[in-house]
Design a protein around this nucleic acid. Sequence first.
DNA 1: AATCAATTGTTTAACGTTAACGAAAATTTG
DNA 2: CAAATTTTCGTTAACGTTAAACAATTGATT
Lengths: 338, 338
Amino acid sequence: MVTIKRLAKEAGVSFSTVAKALNNDETINIETRRRIQLLAKQLNYRPNILARGLRSRRTKTIGVILNDLQSPFYSEIYKAIGEILDHNGYTMFLADSKYDEKLEKENILSMIGLGVEGLIISSVSEMSDNIDFLLKSLVKTVFIDNRPNRSDINCVYVDHFVASSLATNYLISMGHKDILLLNGPKNLPSSCRYLEGYQKSLKEERLPFKEELVVYDSIGLEQSVNLMDQIFSGNHRIKPNAFSAIVTLSDVSAIGIYEASHKHRYSIPDTYSVVGYDNIFFTKYLNPALTTIHQPKEQTGSLAANMLLDSIMERGGDEVQVILSPILIERDSVKSIK
Amino acid sequence: MVTIKRLAKEAGVSFSTVAKALNNDETINIETRRRIQLLAKQLNYRPNILARGLRSRRTKTIGVILNDLQSPFYSEIYKAIGEILDHNGYTMFLADSKYDEKLEKENILSMIGLGVEGLIISSVSEMSDNIDFLLKSLVKTVFIDNRPNRSDINCVYVDHFVASSLATNYLISMGHKDILLLNGPKNLPSSCRYLEGYQKSLKEERLPFKEELVVYDSIGLEQSVNLMDQIFSGNHRIKPNAFSAIVTLSDVSAIGIYEASHKHRYSIPDTYSVVGYDNIFFTKYLNPALTTIHQPKEQTGSLAANMLLDSIMERGGDEVQVILSPILIERDSVKSIK
DNA sequence: AATCAATTGTTTAACGTTAACGAAAATTTG
DNA sequence: CAAATTTTCGTTAACGTTAAACAATTGATT
């Protein structure tokens, strides 16, 4: 392994001269600097991040903790984060919290142990101890995808309340009255906002809110398939004829509905209308093309990354909360029954 | 930040006693050990990986360098890698080489600087200098997705030659004679194997190999859309009526074909038949459901991770090459024209 | 010629951990 | 009961880097 000492020996100078030369320190003669920098390149020298981080606390790494790494939704977000970080010489650690608060805590501690300078996190809960813990610790943090219940934080998220009311309003305008809400885990902040938006739209249109038409914990493909399979089979408290449309918290869930309905020979949108959420890239190629609520994922990622870097570099001042707007994308998975 | 010294002060022992206690060293009284371990948990102590790695070279991290992080194909692979690593107390660094050899080299050097114990990499080229460099360095490496031209390495990949001949044979059996090959970058090992399999199938069936029906660099959604858009518009050396079927190197490319053909009002499979590659999870929900060649992605990831861990732990002996088999998945994007 | 400042380079001490070694206390042995 | 052994804990020196303090050489100024 080629270290600074090795370069020093090779170049015939002290190791700290090499260190300064590599950091382009003006107190080293420009020629010596050039000479050493060239040598470093020739020998494929790379600073040992461990040593640097240990000494200087500047590891040039940041941690990204998300609820589901595999989901294309989060993929697009961390793709955007990665781009920004790359341009700024930073590397990212990715971790999957699997919508689990304990795992999230584990990941946070790991990241701190790894010496990250900052963290971007889609926190599982709105008022988890993890959030307090994070704010007490010294790592700069940006919360994405949802908003913890406090104002002294950096965050960027889309308004889930608006999103679900957009979806619900649209279904109502198409004549649907019994709308199943396939919601996420109950403690998930986005689930709460989502439910509220759904309720608000029903209320506005003077439709009754039927608690029994809300079902939780259906995030992810498999869970969603299983759940809808139960419903379509009649093995669930919700019966197949109790609703004519479905609002989901994610496009992936919507695909689960496609799968289950396909199995039971129900047609979408003829029997059931479906509105997804996220607008992940392939939804327009589904059969039928999915009507969904678009989230600006790339923007979320790049904004979050830039905010974090600003915060790390001490540029930019106070904490900021950025709220992005969702957009309804009309396609073919909703049928008018007016 | 809570360190080993802090714990020592708190517990009234020397810092090295704490270190040993935390590593469950038998030479420390069981009671003292328990006491210190409890304290560590209470104070949310996490070992500083930087310091540990610097001193002991055991960072418990491995690097994963892939050609396209966002593609669901690679997502599924690194998801599987992550699962295995988690169970073994390892963390992973992810990096995107974007099918670029220079960026790949950059990433390799970064990973080494980060102190990874091993590397899983989908190398861009078959005989890149990067491979020699890696083998000369001390980092254990597993190559995935394709096979460098040497035998003294660990790798796991599916046989792209078999894959493309599976696809081509199938199309021929459905009566297609003019088959466009949407291949990846020319230097990509998988592209080479893919071309060879395609040629072999044509030859077997005594069909002429038309070089002009092979087009390169069409990996990724956008490139694929642009390319097909050109072809369908007549602005390409390949004319729209020169072929009746398309074989692609990735499902994502296949989606690009869907997009372009949709724009130009061509029907799949009525005007063009398409066979994808990878079988990423949502292809069966596309319109039309995509006929594709399945790659065992999860298996690839978990095998690679296990091989790497074996190699790191010095268990297991020689280098192994694992070749997995692709499977044809018949769906609705191919039409018989016999 | 003596002084001072600028220029260029070196010495040294951290950062938090591991691990080899040393030392003290507790226990066993003859 | 002294000596030998075991048990238990403390000392110390690395790992490769950064950064502050220090030293040496040169050039400019009085």
